[in-house]
């Protein structure tokens, strides 16, 4: 911090401000820039994945309600890696198949198992949707404070340097404070997009989860009807 006095004559560009900063302030600034990079990475990732997810849901719903046979649909979907509603459909169908192949006796037990399987899959899918939104929230709330910490430390050290230089000239005081305030600026720069993105993506994730839950309930109803039909048909046949 000895160069604070000299800073009065030197340039006050962003780079010089950063280079003049103390160790702690530099660390804070670098950390905040890292947080900003991470935030935008999450934003980009979520943006792409949510768009893809929504497209898949639309496609699946279109196919599902087109009147295509469930067996056929299961056969086409079980091969490839699926996500969202198709994953729920596949897990339910898999459970259905297993139960009927072994000749399940209780319709209630079968219904329960299928529901459980769908719930687990739904929970997994919802988790995948909300993954990393927590870190967005953390950055959004903590980054301003981290930046403030950097500012306080920077101003503290710059005042110590001023006390050392025994001059209260504004030209001596100003660069240190400007450099310290840079930390808060970077903190806000990281926090504001993070907060906005968190609000948007958590709302989107909520909507998508609700859509999947709706499908789960509907599919559960369809399967329950099927089970009743099959079980009532079987004793009649026997």
């Amino acid at each position: 911090m000895e160069q604070v006095g000299l800073a009065a004559t030197s340039e006050v560009t962003l780079w010089s401000l950063f280079m003049q900063a103390g160790f702690v302030v530099k660390l804070v600034m670098l950390g905040l820039i890292g947080a900003s990079i991470w935030t935008w990475a999450i934003v980009a990732d979520k943006w792409v994945s949510f768009a893809k997810f929504r497209r898949q849901l639309d496609q699946f719903e279109q196919v599902f309600w087109s009147g295509q046979s469930l067996e056929e649909l299961y056969r086409t979907l079980s091969d490839r890696k699926s996500s969202g509603m198709s994953a729920i459909f596949v897990s339910a169908m898999r459970e259905w198949k297993k139960s009927f192949e072994r000749g399940a006796k209780s319709p209630i037990g079968l219904q329960m198992r299928i529901d459980k399987a769908m719930d687990v899959t739904l929970a997994r899918e919802a988790d995948a949707l909300e993954a990393r939104l927590g870190s967005l929230a953390t950055i959004g709330s903590a980054a301003p404070f981290i930046g403030l910490f950097g500012t306080v430390v920077g101003i503290m050290t710059s005042f110590q340097a001023i006390a050392g230089s025994k001059s209260t000239n504004l030209a001596v005081v100003a660069p240190g404070i400007a450099e310290a305030l840079l930390a808060t600026a970077i903190g806000l720069l990281a926090a504001i997009p993070a907060v906005i993105a968190y609000n948007k993506f958590s709302a989107d994730a909520g909507k998508l989860s609700a859509r999947m839950e709706g499908f789960t309930d509907e599919f559960s109803g369809i399967l329950s009807r099927q089970i009743d039909e099959r079980l009532s048909a079987r004793p009649a046949a026997e």
């Binding site: 006050v12 560009t13 780079w15 820039i33 990079i37 935030t39 935008w40 980009a44």
Partner: peptide
């Protein structure tokens, strides 16, 4: 991929800021 995209974006923005925001 998105992390790389973000990093590249930041480097670009910071580079632009450092070069264009000279001393007031």
């Amino acid at each position: 991929g998105s992390l790389a995209t973000s990093t590249v974006l930041h480097v670009l923005v910071l580079g632009f800021a450092l070069s264009s925001f000279s001393a007031p």
